[in-house]
Amino acid sequence: MKNRDLLIGFATGAVTAFLVKEAYDRKEKLYSADDVLKQVKSAFKEEGPIDGSWIFMKTEPYKQHAVTTEVYKGGITRHRQDQLEQFEFLADAYTGAVLEVKKV
């Protein structure tokens, strides 16, 4: 085996490893659905106790105007002034930020 062949093999391996690492690092990591739900529950608890909550563990695509992202969909239930209130929310799966809350 010539030194030139060994050097070419080493360079090819190094370049391949670098490209695989870059591709892995670019892949954005999702927040866990549980962490998003804890954050939303915490915000609602500041206004009073909540009775129940839920979240879909699988993300859904969400498009608003020209922006598309993945979101978690969930809900909160609470009693306020002897009336049941239900809310649904959408939270960005990449940042955990709540994008929309609507009363049902």
Results as ranks from 00 to 15, higher is better:
residue 30 L to R: 12
residue 41 K to Y: 00
residue 66 A to F: 13
residue 65 H to I: 09
residue 55 I to S: 04
residue 58 K to E: 14
residue 38 K to I: 03
residue 50 I to V: 11
residue 33 A to D: 14
residue 35 D to R: 11
residue 34 D to H: 09
residue 51 D to L: 10
residue 52 G to Y: 06
residue 43 A to V: 10
residue 49 P to D: 12
residue 33 A to E: 10
residue 60 E to T: 13
residue 55 I to E: 03
residue 38 K to Y: 06
residue 54 W to P: 00
residue 43 A to S: 11
residue 46 E to I: 03
residue 37 L to D: 04
residue 37 L to K: 08
residue 44 F to R: 03
residue 66 A to D: 15
residue 49 P to R: 02
residue 35 D to G: 12
residue 49 P to N: 10
residue 52 G to E: 08
residue 52 G to R: 07
residue 49 P to T: 09
residue 43 A to Y: 07
residue 32 S to P: 05
residue 38 K to L: 11
residue 31 Y to K: 14
residue 40 V to M: 02
residue 66 A to S: 15
residue 57 M to E: 15
residue 36 V to E: 02
residue 34 D to S: 13
residue 60 E to R: 14
residue 34 D to G: 13
residue 51 D to C: 00
residue 33 A to C: 06
residue 55 I to G: 03
residue 57 M to T: 15
residue 30 L to F: 13
residue 50 I to E: 02
residue 66 A to W: 10
residue 48 G to S: 06
residue 53 S to Y: 06
residue 52 G to K: 09
residue 58 K to A: 11
residue 43 A to R: 08
residue 55 I to M: 05
residue 66 A to L: 13
residue 50 I to Y: 04
residue 58 K to V: 09
residue 54 W to M: 08
residue 30 L to I: 01
residue 44 F to K: 03
residue 34 D to I: 08
residue 51 D to G: 02
residue 64 Q to F: 15
residue 39 Q to I: 00
residue 45 K to R: 15
residue 47 E to G: 01
residue 30 L to M: 09
residue 33 A to W: 08
residue 64 Q to S: 13
residue 61 P to Y: 05
residue 42 S to W: 04
residue 47 E to T: 08
residue 66 A to I: 10
residue 59 T to G: 07
residue 33 A to T: 06
residue 52 G to V: 02
residue 57 M to R: 13
residue 56 F to A: 10
residue 63 K to P: 01
residue 48 G to P: 05
residue 37 L to T: 03
residue 44 F to P: 01
residue 37 L to Y: 02
residue 35 D to K: 14
residue 54 W to G: 09
residue 60 E to C: 00
residue 30 L to H: 12
residue 57 M to K: 15
residue 41 K to N: 14
residue 36 V to R: 01
residue 49 P to W: 00
residue 39 Q to W: 02
residue 55 I to Q: 01
residue 42 S to P: 00
residue 31 Y to L: 10
residue 53 S to W: 03
residue 45 K to S: 12
residue 47 E to L: 08
residue 47 E to I: 03
residue 55 I to A: 06
residue 48 G to D: 04
residue 59 T to M: 07
residue 40 V to W: 04
residue 66 A to M: 11
residue 33 A to Y: 11
residue 39 Q to M: 11
residue 31 Y to V: 11
residue 38 K to W: 01
residue 33 A to G: 05
residue 39 Q to F: 09
residue 32 S to V: 05
residue 56 F to Q: 11
residue 65 H to D: 15
residue 63 K to N: 11
residue 43 A to L: 06
residue 39 Q to N: 13
residue 34 D to V: 09
residue 51 D to A: 11
residue 65 H to E: 15
residue 51 D to Y: 02
